[in-house]
Simulated assay, not measured.
Amino acid sequence: MLAAYAARTDPDDPLAGLEVGERPEPVAREGWTTVRLRAASLNHHDLWSLRGVGLPADRLPMVLGCDGAGTTEDGREVVVHAVVADPAWSGDETLDPRRTLLSERYDGTLAEAVAVPTRNLVDKPAELSFEEAACLPTAWLTAYRMLFTQARAVPGQTVLVQGAGGGVASALVALGAAAGLRVWVTSRDGARGERAVGLGAERWFPSGARLPERVDAVMESVGEATWSHSLKALRPGGAVVVCGATSGGAPPADLGRVFFLQLRVLGSTMGTRAELERLLRLLAASGARPQVDTVLPLAEARAGLARLERGEQFGKVVLVP
């Protein structure tokens, strides 16, 4: 089968280790199911894998990709949940210390087919295309958990999203708007800020700008560059939810502000299968849809990953076999 895989890793030039070519068809072990993929989407996780982060040399070659949607042998249309928990684990999969993501220990979704634990399959709503559904299991599920599980945001509250344009940021805007939240975003790029407004944000502000009022929650993935602004933006008792730190992970803690205003600082990683089911139901009912930046053939995976590496995308880059 055709697949995009890491043949080698290079911390400085991740695309140097990428190969697009033939790989063996997956063989489903007991309790697993093979899915013929109709669409898959790219994530920065794929680039980190190509740099060797979380993917040691003894696991190569490894088919990349966490996100996918397709059909099982009996014709069931499914979305693949990318978090693979230990078979003995029960409860929230994201808390399993033995958990892994597809493309870390097991081949991923940038292929014509993938084998996954049967419990990782969720029915695809008829209202969503395969391309839309393939955008959801990482970025959109991460956004869903940040907003509704960790921040416990409710209609009428104001949420600030630090940075506009990426897959998680776009999902936060669209999901927040669909759920009746007032969503503000920051951006260093006015065009991206305006596009975020087009997705449902009420307003956008230049990065670091003074806001007209304090917010109930901040969605933080930038880290060091925006951390001080995130804490200062919160009302007393507010929450900052952190899913990443692309600008660095060692900002000043400002613990005085944290304890005096009783701020909540919450980490968030991916999401559970149950949360993915709720996310799919929300999209089917609300009409909210992922922002698809580009759709490319699987054979052009290198071009899609290069676009992601350069930061040119707004929304998700999707590959179709």
Rank of each mutant, 00 (worst) to 15 (best):
A126M: 13
L64R: 14
V295L: 08
A40C: 10
F259H: 07
D86M: 11
L121E: 09
G68W: 11
A178M: 01
L279H: 11
R76S: 14
V27G: 02
D96W: 09
D216F: 13
C135R: 07
A174D: 11
G156D: 09
L110Y: 10
L276T: 04
S247K: 13
V218W: 01
A126H: 05
D293G: 12
P14L: 03
A284V: 12
L305W: 08
L121M: 07
V53K: 05
R182W: 10
R182E: 14
L305I: 05
G54T: 06
F205H: 01
L305H: 02
A209E: 13
L211M: 11
P87Q: 00
D58E: 00
A169W: 10
A139M: 09
L279K: 10
R38Q: 14
V63G: 06
L42K: 01
A306V: 05
G54F: 09
V27P: 01
R310I: 07
P97L: 00
F148Q: 08
V240W: 00
L64C: 05
K232A: 15
V222F: 11
V317C: 02
L276V: 10
L283P: 15
W48N: 09
L128C: 03
E30G: 10
V240P: 10
V83P: 04
S230D: 11
E112R: 11
A191W: 13
L181R: 04
A7M: 05
S129W: 07
M219L: 11
D107W: 15
P56R: 13
A209V: 15
L308H: 08
K316N: 09
G166N: 04
D107M: 12
E213N: 00
V222P: 02
T9H: 08
V215S: 08
A201D: 05
A40Y: 08
A143P: 12
A284S: 13
R36G: 00
G65L: 13
W184S: 13
A7D: 13
P11R: 15
R76T: 15
L141V: 07
G287C: 05
T186N: 08
R235E: 01
S49T: 07
L110G: 05
A169K: 08
V20P: 05
T246M: 14
T33P: 06
C66E: 14
A134T: 06
T269Q: 13
T34G: 06
G65A: 00
Y144P: 00
